[in-house]
Amino acid sequence: MAAVTDRINGLARRIPTGVVWAGATIPFVWLVWAAATNQLGADPVKAIELKLGLWGLQFLLASLCITPLRRLGLNLLRFRRALGVMAFFYIAMHFLAWVVLDMGLRWDEILRDLYKRPYIILGMVGLLAMLPLAVTSTNPAIRRLGPARWRRLHRLAYVAAMAGAAHFVILVKGWPAEPLLYAGAVAAVLLVRVRLPRPLRA
């Protein structure tokens, strides 16, 4: 086991973080190209909205896997910032797609949804929870806050993940498996933290 994790850690050290940043933008570039060339099916707006939201949740989940993986001896901490910031990017684009493409900038309906619809409210909670995380994702911001306060602030990622998963579960008709699987994954990456020994918690 240790031999395997050492090999992976060694390999991971040689990968520049820029590779993760660049890789994380590929889905977005593909989506723009697919939309421009009419490859998103009969309802491209729904497809765009859904894919952006799903990728945001996936990147958020990936960033939340870094700490549990360290417990198994895998050190991928260098990539967490890219995963977290790209999660925010996709969720912000998901929000924009909703406002501009889905709601067609009908502000009265948008505002009514924002206080009346639980799944919209949950989605907004998730987005707003991620905003301070994105803003404090730079080295100077981390220095200014100090590591302890920065770490405490970044527990908002848990709020974002829970809100995002719940948002996905209640926006669909009925109980299809996919949103429930994501909710289970979020619960899993948060629950393993409850049992982590203090010094490793982050």
Binding site: R106, D113, R117, P118
Partner: peptide, 8 residues
């Protein structure tokens, strides 16, 4: 869970 005031 959602408005029926408009449609796409």
């Amino acid at each position: 869970r959602w408005s029926q005031a408009s449609e796409r």
